[in-house]
Write a protein that binds this DNA or RNA. Structure first.
Length: 950
DNA sequence: TTCTTGACTTGTGCTGAACGGT
DNA sequence: ACCGTTCAGCACAAGTCAAGAA
């Protein structure tokens, strides 16, 4: 069977984590038998749980003080992407010290080689002269970042430096001209405190010496020799050669230097504030999706075998890679297993097995128009899926191309019809009789009474406007102010309580019932393989919860009916029966150039669609995921030239060119999103291309302060030191414009991406995010993993993950109980400290006696104390101190991560092969890093060789 | 060329299961 | 066994980007 299964889910093993052993070489753990055993059970125990309601509310997430990126050593300074916390409080809280030390990044200082820098994540690149000035950092991070770069030892100093300013942090990047950077960065040490520490040379030596890097050494060596390298982008290789550390130092291409040198990054703190609110209505449908036991299919897709079979190595070249990615699918044969079976698919596989199809697929947009009148069937659709040849297949993203040959599924499941509760709300103090339809909408609003939404005017206005349409002109209810939804709200609370009070048996029964109803919708069969369906539940009606200041928040999201839904299914396959009697689907299509199983128009914005796709663990999704990472890896080979290219254009006389250059720089350095144009009926958020004059402030001599609301209205706040030409260009772009005007008036994402494609096939703005995230993880893991305990290794991974999350500005709301929890933790620590101190005092006393040859007397238990050797006593004291340190560390970690979300980057930006290879090399059970779901999603990456480098 | 449509990825919060301490 | 905290997984909003239509 597939490795995947074994690895991940052996039944036998139960939950025991499997660990990859190095010795095993690339092999994954022995596989088990096929499907048999592995079951993944998604079912959870129906116990009652206390949910924590973290809520929503406001997030004020502030970012942890993480340092964003350290300086880069080289050329590009990474933007510090740190986000600053919104709340001053939070900011102040952060401490920089701890993490940083761990985070240190590889650094290269002197690098002579530019190349190396290019490979490096921006974060790691050197700063040119960093003079570290510390900028005002707001504190937390500013320093942090720098510290991070530094070797641990260095941190101390840096710590001092750091101040807790609550304000903004500025990053300091040095803009130093390249020159500065280069040659002797070592020399820079003088300037920079941090820097000094960083001598590459030193580092290298340290590693070998101080740090026990067992694995590393071996590993590295291997890499260089490995064939595997072929696969790897050059850049990646470089690092490997010497010690990772050496990377920087070693490379010599000076060519590159200039560019790199130029970039300096500031690490500013960024803070992000969040303004999301969120309360959601209870959705009817939610439910765990557990797996049912379904038989699994062991069938594999016919494949080419391109896949990687066992050998992880099969590395296809990048180009192929995408095509050949192997994917494991979850298939189940039988009911019981939900275990994913590994399968490999090659894009072409399916085709093979199946009869060749014509390849005509052209990609046309869906034929369905909204009107649906026009249903055009474009050629593609018409074509039978069956016949495409593999060669024709195009990567999923590419647009054209057949995605499947046969597709079977059972459609979607609808939420239950509204069940009136009969509780009367008050209007002007009087109970009001409402029809079920009117009551349903009133209830949607009532249950949100304690959320932030209920206090927002836009939300209330939109809700009331839509509700009035249902009430009709002549309804007694005319003014919102006279409405009192409290009775319904209280009813809701009672229902919630009832639910909570149910016994576990009752809950279990309910769950099973639900599972039984949903089981048939959970699976689809694609090219003969059973695959999980992602979101087979139609969204229930409710009030739209747009994020930020969304102009449509509160509008009624009407109930979706079968007549709103378009089904996509294989030709010749039975069309799913419409689950609601007397109704029928809007349309049934047979389009094998797309991966959706069904869609309906978003009731809030008719121009948008809601799709039903396969689950992330499916082969189709896995293949596309792999292609995404392969494309990002390819960027490694082009990044140097791209940087040279845009640097050259910073001073172009062609404004359009200049804007493209500066925008690309910001996307590369700061990991900004592209920034598509938005309509007026959407929240007012921006990305790089849509930055407005008031989103960027020039802080002389060469810093830029960004403050804007990005995706999901998450605040991006960061002050970064940039190269002087960039600074000047931004200043120029802002000149003569008003606050709300676009900084990049000659640019939009289409133009930018068009330009990027000239630099590298398939390159788009978002690829930089993936590239910088993955290469940062790869670099930190290689630079900082040392021999140590499992927990220590996991901590290294977490720090690396955190670093990436900060770069990407992935935030989360601070849990409501965070402060309480911290207080408790502090009390516990203090208590323990006092206790431990007493012990230490006692031991010290004993130590003195022992040294003087005196008897120890009796212990607390009245028995004479055993005489310990001084060394033993010292050791004991040391252990106690270590324990205290560990607790402090845990506390810091908790504080640091309170506003940082690690999951998003893990799921979307970090090439799983980096993690898998690292786990194999360092014998860390993959389950310690990836949850069951993520493991299933990344089945395609499980058999990577241990020496894989991004 | 620009606008619109369509498809798919990315991102945050909520809910309830899992975990760990008492 | 109970209970609070942590975390996995889901829901669904909000991005990106390509291709077709105008």
């Amino acid at each position: 069977m597939s490795v995947f299964n074994h690895t991940l889910y052996d039944n036998d093993d139960d939950d025991t984590p499997l660990s990859f052993k190095r010795s095993s070489t690339s092999r994954p753990p022995p596989s088990k038998q096929e499907g048999s055993s592995a079951n993944i059970t998604y079912v959870r125990n129906p116990k009652a749980v206390a949910s924590n309601q973290q809520r929503n509310g406001i997030n004020g997430a502030s970012r942890s003080p993480l340092p964003l990126k350290p300086q880069s050593t080289g050329s590009n300074p990474r933007p510090s992407g740190s986000v600053q916390p919104n709340s001053s409080v939070e900011r102040s809280q952060k401490s920089n010290t701890v993490d940083k030390s761990k985070l240190r990044r590889p650094h290269v200082e002197g690098d002579k080689s530019d190349d190396s820098d290019d490979d490096k994540p921006l974060a790691f690149r050197k700063k040119p002269d960093t003079k570290l000035k510390k900028v005002d950092t707001g504190g937390e991070n500013a320093y942090g970042s720098e510290d991070d770069h530094k070797p641990h030892g260095m941190n101390i100093n840096s710590a001092k430096v750091a101040s807790n300013n609550s304000t903004n942090k500025t990053v300091l990047l040095k803009t130093a001209p390249l020159k500065t950077l280069q040659p002797d960065d070592d020399s820079d040490d003088d300037h920079k405190p941090l820097v000094q520490r960083f001598n590459p040379a030193k580092r290298a030596s340290n590693n070998s010496t101080n740090k026990p890097v067992l694995l590393k050494a071996a590993h590295k060596i291997v890499q260089s020799n490995d064939d595997s390298e072929d696969e790897k982008p050059l850049a990646s290789r470089l690092p490997t050669n010497a010690a990772p550390k050496s990377r920087a130092s070693t490379s010599d291409s000076e060519d590159e230097k200039p560019l790199s040198a130029r970039f300096s990054r500031g690490t500013a703190g960024t803070s992000a504030s969040i303004s999301n609110s969120k309360d959601k209505l209870p959705s009817n449908n939610k439910g765990p999706n557990n797996n049912l036991s379904a038989p699994r299919n062991s069938v594999k897709r016919p494949s080419d075998n391109n896949n990687q079979t066992s050998s992880a190595l099969k590395k296809a070249k990048s180009s192929d890679a995408s095509a050949s990615g192997s994917v494991k699918r979850e298939s189940k044969d039988d009911d019981n297993n939900s275990v994913p079976v590994e399968r490999k698919l090659t894009p072409g596989e399916s085709s093979k097995s199946k009869p060749p199809v014509k390849n005509i697929v052209k990609k046309s947009p869906l034929s369905v128009k909204k009107d649906n009148k026009t249903f055009k069937t474009k050629t593609k659709k018409t074509m039978k899926s069956s016949q495409f040849s593999k060669s024709l297949r195009v990567p999923p993203g590419s647009g054209g191309g057949k995605k499947w040959s046969t597709l079977e599924h059972n459609g979607v499941i609808f939420p239950p019809p509204y069940n009136p509760h009969g509780v009367k709300m008050l209007y002007n103090g009087q109970p009001v009789e409402l029809t079920p339809e009117e009551e349903e909408v009133a209830t949607m609003f009532a249950v949100m009474k304690d959320t932030e939404y209920a206090a927002k005017k836009t939300f209330v206005d939109n809700f009331f406007g839509d509700w009035k349409k249902i009430l009709g002109k002549n309804h007694i209810i005319k003014k919102f102010e006279l409405c009192d939804f409290t009775p319904i709200y209280e009813w809701h609370l009672r229902e919630k309580e009832k639910k909570k009070q149910m016994t576990s048996e009752e809950k279990k029964a309910l769950k099973e019932e639900k599972l039984k109803q949903e089981e048939k919708y959970m699976w689809a069969v694609v090219d003969g393989v059973r695959e999980k369906v992602g979101n087979f539940r139609v969204e229930p009606p409710g009030l739209f919860r747009g994020r930020g200041e969304h102009p449509k928040m509160g509008k009624l999201k009407k109930r979706i009916r079968p007549s709103d839904i378009t089904i996509n299914i294989g030709k010749g396959t039975a069309v799913p029966e419409c689950p609601i009697e007397g109704e029928s689907w809007k349309e049934v299509k047979h389009d094998n150039t797309v991966t959706w199983l069904a869609f309906w128009n978003d009731p809030i914005s008719q121009k948008d669609f809601k799709y039903v796709f396969l689950a992330a663990s499916s082969s189709l999704k896995g293949q596309s995921d792999k292609e995404k990472y392969e494309k990002s890896r390819k960027l490694k080979d082009h990044i140097h030239n791209i940087r040279v290219n845009y640097t050259k254009d910073f001073k172009s006389n062609d404004v359009s060119k200049k804007q493209i250059a500066v925008a690309t720089y910001l996307i590369d350095k700061l990991a900004l999103r592209a920034g598509n144009e938005k309509d007026d009926d959407e929240a007012d958020t921006v990305g790089c291309c849509t930055l407005k004059v008031d989103n960027v402030t020039c802080v002389p001599p060469n810093k830029l302060q960004f403050d804007f609301l990005g995706k999901d209205s998450i605040r991006y706040f960061n002050t970064v030191e940039v190269e002087l030409p960039v600074y000047n260009a931004i200043e120029e772009f802002r000149t003569g414009k008003k606050d709300g005007d676009p900084v990049f008036d000659k640019l939009d994402t289409t133009k930018l991406n068009h330009h990027l494609k000239d630099l590298m096939p398939g390159l788009t703005a978002k690829v930089f995010r993936t590239y910088n995230a993955s290469i940062t993880l790869d670099a930190i893991l290689h630079e900082e993993t040392e021999d140590g305990t499992l927990l220590e290794k996991i901590a290294v991974y977490q720090r690396a993950n955190k670093e990436v999350a900060i770069i990407c500005n992935h935030q989360r709301a601070v849990s409501k109980s965070h402060d309480t929890q911290m207080t408790k933790l502090n009390e516990k620590i203090d208590e323990l400290k006092a206790f431990l101190q007493a012990q230490i005092d006692e031991l010290n006393k004993d130590l003195g006696k022992v040294k003087r040859g005196k008897p120890l007397g009796n212990g607390a238990d009245g028995k004479p104390k055993r005489t310990l050797a001084p060394e033993a006593i010292e050791k004991k004291i040391s252990q106690i101190e270590t324990k205290i340190e560990k607790m402090e560390m845990d506390k810091k970690t908790k504080e640091d991560l309170k506003t940082v979300a690690l999951g998003t980057s893990k799921i979307n930006y970090l090439d799983p092969r980096i993690t898998v290879a690292w786990c194999k090399t360092h014998e860390v059970p993959i389950e310690k890093i990836f949850s069951k779901t993520i493991l299933a999603k990344f089945g395609w990456a499980m058999d990577v060789e241990p020496d894989f480098r991004f």
